[in-house]
Design a protein around this nucleic acid. Sequence first.
DNA 1: TATTGTTATACTCTATAACTATA
DNA 2: TATAGTTATAGAGTATAACAATA
Lengths: 168, 168
Amino acid sequence: MATPLPRDPIADARGNWERAGWSDVAAPMAAVTAIMRTQQLLLARVEGVLKPFGLTFARYELLALLSFARSGALPMNKASALLQVHPTSVTNAVDRLQDAGLVVRSRHPTDGRTTLVELTRQGKTLARQATLALNEEVFASSGFPEQDVDDLIQILGRFRRNAGDFTD
Amino acid sequence: MATPLPRDPIADARGNWERAGWSDVAAPMAAVTAIMRTQQLLLARVEGVLKPFGLTFARYELLALLSFARSGALPMNKASALLQVHPTSVTNAVDRLQDAGLVVRSRHPTDGRTTLVELTRQGKTLARQATLALNEEVFASSGFPEQDVDDLIQILGRFRRNAGDFTD
DNA sequence: TATTGTTATACTCTATAACTATA
DNA sequence: TATAGTTATAGAGTATAACAATA
């Protein structure tokens, strides 16, 4: 971890915005910037935990998704939709995971256009191990007090719904 | 924007965690995942606004930082520290911005090891235009209600301080 | 010796476009 | 015609290691 700065750079940026005459948007600017930075910190932490497993966050997310799929298998486009990433990103991730022996592709029984992805036994095991590591090393001490966790879930849930992520 | 999902995938993941017996970390997992997704949505929005200016978010951040520097110039390592990115990322960004005529490098007057970065007149103009566009098209309607903005700034500020970003 | 910055290299993820195969 | 997926290609950011120059 780098040396802490003597001052909060985002609070400083907010001050700069206000002095420039943009007071009306200074707070949202600060909030958006803080989300960017927080994501960066959390991602580094998560990837640090996943690295020993040979996984990136994107690939872990796919493994985790599959591990909770009822039938154990998902169509590529379903995975793309649920993970909210581009279809080519899924193709890429599945390629790597398949090379690592963690997933296999198979044909859809009735729709010949569709490719299914499924965890191998090895993939199931690794997904579970990686999840336990994340639970213990990241989520159990996330750095957010309990009330903040609840507030974040509410606030970001409203935002994501508003942004069109889901209708629910 | 892709078709909204019928259900919130993060709420579903939280339910999966609880059913797997990981109730104690289900909420922090959901909060962390929500931050990841929110960052993705915001970044896409920001980069969409910056694209017509030929800027990425990383390069814009550097321009904005320089535009608020008192002397108008910053050492590379100072920029790296304030933006909280790797020094090679700054080298890379400055290379591109210099190619575009938006910044120039110069020698530090007293420390020969240090390289200063400074906005050109063109860089100053573009930084201002891009900022006005972001203010208008992103921050003025960020998708967060005013109270949520304030809460986010508080919650994420606590987290970042706790993570060692700043001491303040 | 320590610091600053660059270079070379490599590895992510992402996106567009063109293409095949199937419905 | 529309959909599903792959391929090729490109570009982004990031990181490590080796190196040069300076303190």
